[in-house]
Computed example of a mutant assay.
Amino acid sequence: MISEDQLKTWGKQGSTGQFTATHDTLKTWLNDSNSPFCTKDFSIFLQGSYKNDTNIYGDSDVDVVIQLNQTFYPDLSILTDEEEQLWKAAHSDAEYTLKQFKNDVTSWLVKKYGSDVQTGTKAICIKGNGNRRNADVLVCCKHRRYERFRSLNDQSCQDGISFFNSSGVRIDNFPKQHRDNCAKKHRHSNNWFKHTARIYKNLRNTMIEKNVIEDNLAPSYFIEGLLWNVPLDRFGGTEQQNLFDTLDWLWNADRSKFVCANDLCSLFHPTSLVTWRAEKCKKFLSKAIGYWEAA
């Protein structure tokens, strides 16, 4: 078994000093009044491990979101035909598009960071330099998943974000719901949830370093979603008991019913860009159990 001391170390939050400096500098630049998008309605916020307080010592990337608030993409799939027609009659196409916004943000970042700026699959990547950490800037607009629409004064929707990957495919996600639900789970688990998420991430990284699993088998977002499905009574006790009880429950559970921590999407799907693959999760859990038993 993995020792009690090792698990306790793995459960500690990583340092945030360089992260804070990188984030503050980047946010100041994006809010500069000379930017080509300064007159637009936008907001800047964090997402990922640093925002969710589940960062570990091996984390290096700072995940920053810049969201265009005056433009949004809708999901009308569960509205009735009548509601969809009412929605279309009440809305018009945006004058300033997400594509324009991303082009403006990219050019502004290049002006400051030069060749350290590269366009990634989903985000704009800024290479670290000196005390500056690597940063991923996700350019998005609002997303609204409608549950009801009768008029602008009588509607219900879930607010999320929409962005496009490098292949031009739109991706919708709900980071605020993920963050809020993880925070609630942490409180209700007597502060064990985030501690446990950091242990699982460190266990994953150790297995990657020792070539037990391949990189990208278990992204941090999905590890948090996986653990969000674990019942509260499985968290706690000694460090070893906590890991054993959560792993044991996850391995024996009907994982096909798991949902993402945002509680709006299934955790597993064979093709969706915002869900995990069931076979990857099974492999990760199998390897984690094997590593635990052999340690």
Rank of each mutant, 00 (worst) to 15 (best):
D5G: 12
I66C: 14
R234N: 01
R187K: 11
Q158S: 06
A218D: 05
L138E: 06
I66R: 13
C265W: 04
N229I: 07
E224F: 03
N165G: 04
D116V: 01
P36R: 09
A218I: 03
T246R: 00
E95F: 07
N229S: 12
D136I: 06
L285I: 14
N173R: 04
D254H: 00
N31P: 05
I161K: 05
Q158K: 13
T275P: 06
S167I: 00
N205R: 07
V274S: 14
Y73G: 15
T28S: 13
A295N: 11
A90C: 10
S60F: 15
F258A: 00
L217Y: 04
W228M: 01
N181V: 03
M1K: 06
V212R: 13
E4A: 09
Y73A: 15
G290T: 02
K27V: 15
F163K: 07
T246I: 00
N69W: 06
E147G: 12
W276N: 06
R234E: 00
T271S: 14
I56A: 14
F174S: 09
T16I: 05
K142F: 00
K176N: 10
S107T: 05
N202Q: 07
N129Q: 09
N181H: 08
R198Y: 11
T238G: 01
D53R: 12
N181E: 04
K102H: 12
I66W: 13
N252A: 06
Y96M: 02
S220N: 08
H178S: 11
C182F: 01
E279K: 08
D32E: 12
K88A: 09
A94P: 02
G58D: 13
H195A: 05
D248L: 02
A183R: 10
K102I: 03
E209Q: 15
K176Q: 14
N153S: 09
D41V: 05
K99S: 12
Q13K: 13
K27I: 14
S33T: 10
R150S: 11
S43E: 14
L109G: 08
R132N: 01
C260M: 15
S92H: 01
T16Q: 09
L227W: 04
A218R: 04
W276K: 05
S15C: 02
L98T: 06
Q47K: 15
K12S: 07
K51R: 15
I213R: 03
L247A: 02
N252V: 00
V64S: 13
T206H: 14
T20L: 14
M1H: 10
Y113C: 09
N211P: 00
Q177F: 07
K112C: 04
R204C: 06
D245G: 00
T275G: 02
R133S: 08
W249S: 02
L267W: 01
R187T: 08
Q70H: 08
A135Q: 03
H269D: 15
T20M: 09
C281V: 07
D81S: 13
L264F: 10
P231W: 00
N129Y: 10
Q241M: 01
F42L: 08
N52S: 13
V65F: 13
N173L: 08
N205G: 07
F45V: 13
C140E: 05
K282A: 15
A21F: 02
E293T: 04
C260K: 12
E4C: 03
N181G: 02
S33G: 03
